[in-house]
């Protein structure tokens, strides 16, 4: 009886989370340009549309470039910071950890508006690269959290052994720390990448009138009614996120990354 109740609850939550996506997946394969479910006819042409229609293709390209570069910048900010905090005793430097987590904790509209006033004041408003910095700052939290977790898992005696044998900081970092931290670095990058791909408001407030990312493109298209390409892009996004997180789970320890310590290293 309890087992059934448990399964039923999982089913309800699972349906709630997947139903909108199932409907959208169904709508995305409609043969004609109609918003109908169950789909009338079957066609994958709306998926092709993402890559052949110049507007959607350039939005896709803009989003991918933005996500690739901003996630890289976020990791570049997070890596030296978390290394320093792990290597040195400098309590005041924790303020930068807080600063790195703040943009993600506050409502996004605040980071977005702050950056908007900043770029408008400095005269760079609308430059595509401002969105890269914006996203890097907004999502730096993710690599920062995964890397801090990674550093705390490193056995300090490895590093001490290397130091005793005469390795300097740089060598230690390259030969001992980096290989140990790499899974955390990659997952931090992956989280930042996926979220940047989906981010709307920071991109919209900083470069919304000059650069159209996919989320911005979907919203603009949504205002003028419905095109089936929105549905196919949505499914493409869900699919991409699921693949990336599955890879993270396959090569890393997902429950541990999400804060659940494995029972043996408590």
């Amino acid at each position: 009886m309890m087992q059934w109740l448990k399964r039923f609850y999982f089913l309800v939550i699972g349906l709630f989370l997947s139903l909108p996506l199932i409907i959208v997946a169904g709508v995305s394969v409609n043969a004609k340009q109609t918003l109908a479910f169950p789909p009338q006819g079957f066609s994958l042409s709306w998926y092709g549309e993402i890559f052949t229609n110049p507007e959607w293709r350039s939005a896709l390209l803009a989003s991918v470039i933005l996500a690739t570069t901003s996630a890289a910048l976020a990791v570049l900010i997070a890596l030296p910071l978390s290394w320093f905090l792990w290597r040195r005793i400098a309590p005041w430097a924790n303020i930068f950890q807080v600063l790195g987590i703040a943009p993600f904790t506050l409502p996004p509209v605040i980071t977005a508006l702050g950056l908007l006033t900043f770029w408008a004041t400095t005269g760079f408003y609308g430059q595509p690269w401002t969105a890269v910095i914006g996203h890097a700052i907004f999502f730096v939290t993710l690599p920062l959290v995964t890397l801090s977790l990674g550093f705390s898992a490193i056995d300090r005696s490895f590093v001490e052994a290397a130091a005793t044998m005469g390795a300097n900081d740089r060598t230690i970092f390259r030969t001992v720390v980096l290989p140990l931290i790499l899974p955390y670095l990659v997952s931090g990058y992956a989280f930042a990448f996926v979220l940047s791909l989906n981010e709307y408001i920071v991109a919209y407030m900083t470069v919304g009138f000059t650069l159209e990312t996919l989320p911005i493109k979907i919203f603009n298209a949504l205002r003028y009614g419905y095109t089936p390409t929105m549905a196919s892009v949505t499914i493409l996004f869900v699919f991409t996120a699921a693949v990336i997180f599955s890879l993270v789970a396959k090569f890393g320890d997902l429950p541990k990354l999400l804060g659940a310590m494995a029972s043996d290293d408590k």
């Binding site: 918003l35 996120a241 999400l258």
Partner: peptide, 25 residues
């Protein structure tokens, strides 16, 4: 892990996409 991957995938969805999916539903 399977559930966590699913949850993360939904969590990372853009508000635009969630809005569009529900407006369709």
């Amino acid at each position: 892990v399977i559930w966590l991957v699913g949850l993360l995938s939904v969590l990372s969805l853009s508000e635009v996409i969630i809005g569009f999916a529900w407006s369709t539903l």
